[in-house]
Each structure stands twice: as C-alpha cells, then as structure tokens.
C-alpha cells in the first residue's frame, strides 16, 4: 500500500532496490517478530469455541439503563422495536478466550479494549450462537518492553444463521523482562 510520500529525487524503476525513508519506516513498522509470526501462522482464524446465548429481555433492559440509554427501544422490553444496544454483545462471554493449546507468554493478561461490529438487531428471546477465533496478534514495544496484543473475535449468528455482530476482545500481555 502506498503511503503517499515519495522521494521525487530518485527515479522509479521496477527492478530498483532503492527505497525511500518513508518506505523503510513503513517496512520497519510492518515487520513482525519471528515468534509472533509463528503464533499467527499457528492460531489465527482457527475456531476454538462455540457457545449459545439465550437473550433475556430483562438483562438487555437493565444493561441499557445502566449504560444511560434513554430510548424505550432499548430500555422497555414491551416496546415494539425492543432490541439490545449494539455494545450489548460485548457482555456475551464464551467458555474460553484463547485456544486451549495457546502458549503461556510469560506475563499477566489485561483487558485492553472491546470492539463491536453491528450487522443486525439482537432481539430478546433469540438464541445466538457465538463462534470464537483469534483474529489478530501484534506487538508494540515501549520503555517497559514488548507488549503482545491478542484480538479474540466472537462471531454471533441468530437462529436463522444471520450474522448479527462481531464482538472483539483485545487482551494485552506485558512480557516480563528476561534476565
């Protein structure tokens, strides 16, 4: 992908090995550590969990009220268009967050964030099926060392097979400095 920055002093040539500083910086940023690439090759996009959820209207309404939603569409189970706020799917937790054979990375995992892609309404009384896989593994390096980010994606489907949402959990593991 082009970064939009090009050193115009250097002629372009298809076989040239010449790269700009911006391209070198991008290549450095995109470089994946060997151990992380190995984890990506072994674990990304392989389903490791499947679980079903009964969507309870009272739970949805109480979630919405706690969040500060005011529309009866989210807070009143008797409303004709009652549905869960999109972020509700982040409360649906599978049996496991990682593949059973995923290695210990030597640090404590912390919840670094949640992401939701909404595709269709989640209704009370519906039974959803959640299928989980590791969606991404990447690192960031700071003053305290390397941090490994693991993105677990749960894809949610309703009983007709409609894909209603993706719920991502981003876990960060701050690696212990090796002596």
């Amino acid at each position: 992908m082009s970064c939009g920055v090009r050193d115009i002093r250097k002629p372009e040539h298809p076989t040239s090995k010449t790269t700009t500083k911006a391209e070198e910086a991008m290549a450095e940023a995109e470089k994946v550590d060997e151990d992380i690439q190995d984890l990506r090759d072994r674990f990304l996009n392989s389903e490791f969990d499947e679980v079903t959820f009964e969507i309870d209207g009272e739970r949805v309404a109480q979630y919405a009220l706690a969040c500060g939603e005011t529309s009866p569409k989210f807070t009143d189970p008797g409303h004709e268009d009652f549905q869960a706020p999109p972020t509700f799917v982040s409360t649906l937790v599978g049996r496991r967050n990682m593949p059973s054979d995923f290695p210990e990375l030597g640090g404590m995992g912390m919840d670094a964030g949640k992401g939701v892609e909404w595709k269709a309404p989640v209704r009370a009384g519906e039974t959803l099926t959640g299928r989980s896989h590791l969606h991404d593994i990447y690192t960031k390096t700071g003053r305290s060392g390397r941090m490994v980010f693991l993105v677990t994606r749960m894809e949610l489907f309703d009983s007709s097979g409609t894909h209603v949402a993706n719920a991502d959990t981003r876990t960060v593991i701050r690696e212990k400095i090796r002596a």
Binding site: Y63, T87, F88, G115, V116, W118
Partner: peptide, 22 residues
C-alpha cells in the same frame, strides 16, 4: 463501552451504531 454507545444515542436517537472500538 456502553456509556459511549448511550452518548451517541442521546445525541442522535435514530442513529445505528455500526462499529465501535474502545
């Protein structure tokens, strides 16, 4: 995360939040 969604709905009651990353 739910607070963030509620804020958007309070501002735009008919909005559909199609993606949110926190």
């Amino acid at each position: 995360q739910g607070f963030l969604g509620a804020m958007i709905h309070r501002w735009a009651p008919d909005a559909e939040i199609i993606a949110i990353d926190t």
